[in-house]
């Protein structure tokens, strides 16, 4: 079953709704939730950083599950979902890294520090960026799909190992900061939840939209292939 472009309108609608919801959540972030005592306004980064990181991880989970499913069923539509999820995952984790660095600069005075979560995010960003490089190569489609699926599975198996090793590495150095998060006030919690859910809506919309686009791209390539054959 080839991937279908019918996800484009659904995706657009979902993404638009997610964008509006995310904008509305800003009211909760800046008006409803109190300004944090020690960090001040900078702490507001957290409300965008956490959803970004979460949904990036969710994207990679989709790549993992989709890759297994693809190897079992060989349905190109599943592969299109994996590709879309990985692109969005790399985008979101890249933004999560940037917001994390801004946070680190304000909270700890450095752009980068060896925090297990930050390090894991960076390493995963590298791994999945590599996956996208593989995606961009010029090789026969069936082969590329299998290669990407195998990499998608191996990459996700690597996540816990990367996290554990990053934590192990740090435990030898003195801890330079206290762990973040901790005791959130109810108003803050509400704002975080609202942001995460809106981001989720946006994420689902982008995923569907991108999958639809990929489907359209493949359809055009197919048509070109068939047209070329008749010449």
């Amino acid at each position: 079953m080839p991937p279908s472009p019918r996800h484009i309108p659904t995706g657009s609608a979902l993404a638009a709704a997610g964008g509006l919801a995310l904008a509305a959540s800003q009211w909760l972030v800046f008006r409803h939730a109190p300004v944090e005592a020690t960090m001040g306004l900078t702490q507001k980064i957290f409300y965008i950083h956490l959803p970004l990181a979460w949904w990036a991880l969710a994207s990679f989970l989709v790549v993992f599950a989709g890759s297994i499913l693809f190897l079992l069923r060989r349905n190109p539509a599943t592969d299109a979902w994996c590709r879309a999820a990985c692109e969005i995952g790399v985008l979101l984790s890249g933004l999560a890294l940037l917001t994390g660095m801004l946070w680190g600069r304000q909270a700890w005075g450095v752009w980068w520090t060896w925090d297990p979560r930050l390090t894991t995010t960076l390493v995963m960003w590298f791994v999945y960026a590599g996956y996208l490089v593989l995606r961009g190569l010029d090789m026969p489609a069936p082969r590329k799909r299998v290669a990407c699926a195998v990499l998608g599975i191996a990459a996700f198996c690597d996540v816990p190992l990367v996290f554990l090793s990053a934590r192990l590495w740090r435990s030898i150095h003195p801890a330079v900061f206290a762990s973040k998060g901790g005791g959130l006030e109810p108003e803050m919690k509400l704002a975080v939840i609202a942001c995460t859910l809106s981001m989720g809506l946006l994420w689902a919309g982008l995923l569907a939209l991108r999958t639809g686009q990929i489907a359209q791209e493949e359809r055009i390539e197919t048509l070109e292939g068939l047209a070329g054959q008749d010449d």
Binding site: M124, F126, G130
Partner: peptide, 20 residues
């Protein structure tokens, strides 16, 4: 170059262990 780009980040845990 493709293989280095794919291998190195995947092997981070192993390389950290090797280095320590």
């Amino acid at each position: 170059s493709l293989l280095s780009v794919l291998f190195f980040p995947l092997q981070v845990p192993l390389l950290l262990a090797g280095i320590k």
